[in-house]
Amino acid sequence: MKTLGKMKYALAFLFVLLAANFLVAQKVREGSAPDGMKNVPNGDGSAAAVAAGPTGQAVVTGNGINYNGGPVLKGTVPIYIIWYGNWNGTGSNTAATRTIIETLIGGLSNSGYEKINSTYGDATGNVSGAMTLVKEVFDSGSQGTRLRNSRISSAISAQLTSGNLPTDASGVYLFLTSSDVKESGFCTQFCGFHTRQTLNGADIKWAFIGNVDQCPSGCEAQTTGPNSTAGSGGGADGMANVIAHETEEAISDPDLNAWFDSSGQENADKCNFRFGTTSTAANGSHFNQTLGGLNFLLQMNWENSRGGGCDQTLGGTFQ
């Protein structure tokens, strides 16, 4: 009887241990954020913890997208480009693509299209709609041709610590890869993404955009774009569209805690691959923006005013 009693205590102890273990495991599964942090969407329905932003400021809401308390990038936003891989190759991996993207960045600044982003703000002001391409660097493949997040951040970090690029928390770093470079999830899940990380001691906002000639059906609106030349593919035009998307989001939601809706969609996500009315270029392709003297087919962006909607220019027709 004495032994049976001991066994009862042992079983009760085992039950308590198992229950505690179960509860701890559930907490991990729920992904609860530590103190001072908050869960933010990853854009794919999942969530991750980031530092919580300030809350309670007066900003314009009620237009189909929510303000979640974090900062936006104000003033003229510096843009830095890291051309990763072989950009002296063939197809769209050439200097011609680089010129098209440089023209795009210059043309976007203060355009009616980019001014849609000026409907987003934080406690201290709104996005200006201005940006400037400050510096470009090349990395022929320091992290190999099979990338993942950690390798991209290592490559960007190396540019900052070496001083090749300034460490600028107010800027956006575009990491653009040639079509021979693979990134896990690129073309099957995404055409690009943006994020933030502490690199070289600063809160660095960076975006990955691959050469979409790897998957025209997944990431290009049209295989021949308005700037495509014979045999070049639509990579430059396709990348231009994704770059426009990522820069809009990296500016209006730089720390992933400012502007997104209840399903986790940021402004450009809400209009992904929606172009509105288009014109036809001489080569038969479609375009809806003329920036820096070049035609582009860029997705619309979500305007945070007039009830909210996708349009091609600030104050334009919602489509």
């Binding site: 991750a48 099957t188 899940q189 993404f193 994020t195 989001e249 939601d253 997104f260």
Partner: peptide, 14 residues
């Protein structure tokens, strides 16, 4: 680890 990042979904994912 799930990295905190916001993606541009492909056309097929959409």
């Amino acid at each position: 680890k799930l990295n905190p990042r916001i993606i541009t979904a492909t056309r097929q994912v959409t």
